[in-house]
Amino acid sequence: MSIKVIIIDDEPLARQLVKNFLSEYSDLEVLAECGDGFEALKAIQQLNPDLVFLDIQMPKLDGFELLDVLPSRPEIVFTTAYDQFAIKAFELNAVDYLLKPFSRERFGEALQKARSRVGKNLAESALAVSKLQNHIETSREAIERVVTRLGSKITVIPVDKIHYLEAQDDYVMIYSELGNHLKEKTMRYFEQHLPSNTFVRIHRSSIINISQISAVELYTKDTHLVSLKCGAKLKASEEGYKRLRSYL
């Protein structure tokens, strides 16, 4: 059985090098080469590869964002010039992390590791997905954009274009200038990762962008009603209103 491979890198010569190193092995088949994250996402979904060589810094959608919106993940070997992402990559249970420029031998080692994992690790890749989720939940880095996927349509929403977010069962609905998008994440995740100087959780089920507020009025004894510029009206709990007031 041959192993199906996709190479993702925004530099043509870097892709060529991986392809060249791979040509030594007869049981590997390169299905596609992609120069950016969107192209890669489409290719992975359509071609369902076993193994992906992935650069991290790419235009539009970077390597990590790409993984975040993938419904099911192939084995990943990261190829990058920076060592600063190595820890994150291993937390994502990547097969290996190749620092550019890398030798043929080092590349062979990575391939060896990948080969031992491909095809026999359904349980492991389920674990990998949960690890990925876990990693994203726990790292406290502020995010600059949210990437959502609906079928094959990917939307990248810069956080400052978000009006507000609302909990919907296991999902969060993101209302933004670019429309409404569902994301499989928790409210807690967004509360922790959206820039805390512009986003406030005013209720168990809603987070708002404070620059979008047009009016705040008393609703019942304990609750307030927050009106946003986009026309939405949201209830603020007693606690949520306190948080909001401390910002304004």
């Binding site: 530099e11 010569l13 870097a14 090098l17 010039a81 920076y82 550019k100 890398f102």
Partner: peptide, 15 residues
Amino acid sequence: NPHFLFNSLNSVSSL
């Protein structure tokens, strides 16, 4: 910029 340097060396490696 080290990113520029290492990526350039990678291109050289490919060439």
